[in-house]
Design a protein around this nucleic acid. Structure first.
Lengths: 183, 183
DNA sequence: GGTTTTATCGCCTTCAGTGCCACAAGTCAA
DNA sequence: TTGACTTGTGGCACTGAAGGCGATAAAACC
């Protein structure tokens, strides 16, 4: 169902596809679509709750001795590891999310929960609250690193996603100091 | 005109205020609003082009000898320095942008240009292209720092905006290493 | 079997956003 | 002064997302 919509968006374009089109294609009522998706925008996100659970799980199993940024980087990379068969669909999703303005904008709302997971993790590590400046900043910054990596991956299909994520997170941990990261 | 809309959004709420309401309040046609603003969302952004120009200008006058992250931090702080009289309106704008979902989402689109300015600056410094992973990551990360600081400022009106920005950017430059930043 | 959920979906409304067009006001030029 | 051209205004009608309401059908429960 989400797949079907994703396919239509990919073929005809997101704005060019109306909910009417999707409902007709699925042989269901337009109204019923809203029982499964909160909005048209939400249709491109697959099992995002699963992504959150997975990130939370990966963070939870990191050794408390591992440095914060190492644990974060490893957990993000692990939680973004997919079997090869899953990559084409992921690429379609991410291409839409990073290129269609309405979806780019909407991602801000969906990713708030993702940032929250990171902030919560940082807060526990630092003995702070997730609403404090440091954990919150890290939540935003981690999302920044992920977004930059995904955007690059979408634009350069030959490059490896996990390598890009690794580079982006190392860059972040190096404080973007040119002397501290190797190109 | 933007002021008037801002005031209505602030008083009645963004979603509760229709374009009809604003047009009527201004004594102009609803259609005419669209000659001045691309969308309802855009009405809360004041002179954002000015903000971009200012950031670009501040970045341009930094010494080439200053470390990248120091130059960036100083430029962002300088470009966010406002006279006290301007702060209440800024706070109103930022409160709306950081709390109303539609505006939160839309900010992603508006801030793309801001990220571009930072990426361009980083690209020049590093002898890279603004589309490369490093400059782009820094663009996203800088926006992350600014957003975290602004969000915190909105939630904690007594704290000083420039101090928060300073802390967020130092955190970023320190690679979020707990050993390298002082609480 | 009857009752209570739960799912489906049609109808109607609101509102943002857009195209089209008419009208008015101002600018410029001869 | 007049005619041509530009620019601002805004009415009208349309599309499409979103959401409220309620009727009907299907499924689950007792």
């Amino acid at each position: 169902m989400g797949r079907f919509a994703l396919g239509m968006f990919d073929e005809r374009g997101f704005e060019q596809t109306t909910l009417e089109d999707i409902a007709r294609g699925l042989g269901i009522g337009r109204r019923t679509l809203f029982r499964y998706f909160a909005s048209k925008n939400d249709m491109v996100w697959g099992d995002f709750d699963g992504v959150l659970r997975r990130l939370r799980g990966e963070l939870a199993i990191r050794s408390p001795d591992a440095p914060l940024m190492d644990a974060l980087r490893d957990a993000v990379i692990a939680s973004n590891t997919y079997p090869d068969e899953a990559l084409p669909e992921l690429r379609t999703r991410m291409t839409l999310i990073t290129t269609v303005p309405a979806l780019q904008a909407h991602s801000m709302l969906r990713y708030a929960a993702w940032r929250g997971v990171v902030a919560q993790f940082a807060a526990e590590r630092l003995g702070a609250s997730a609403e404090d400046l440091v954990p919150r900043s890290l939540g935003y910054a981690a999302l920044a690193a992920s977004t930059a990596a995904f955007t690059h991956w979408v634009e350069h299909p030959r490059e490896d996603l996990l390598t890009l994520l690794d580079r982006a997170y190392r860059l972040l941990a190096a404080g973007f100091d040119p002397a501290r990261f190797q190109r």
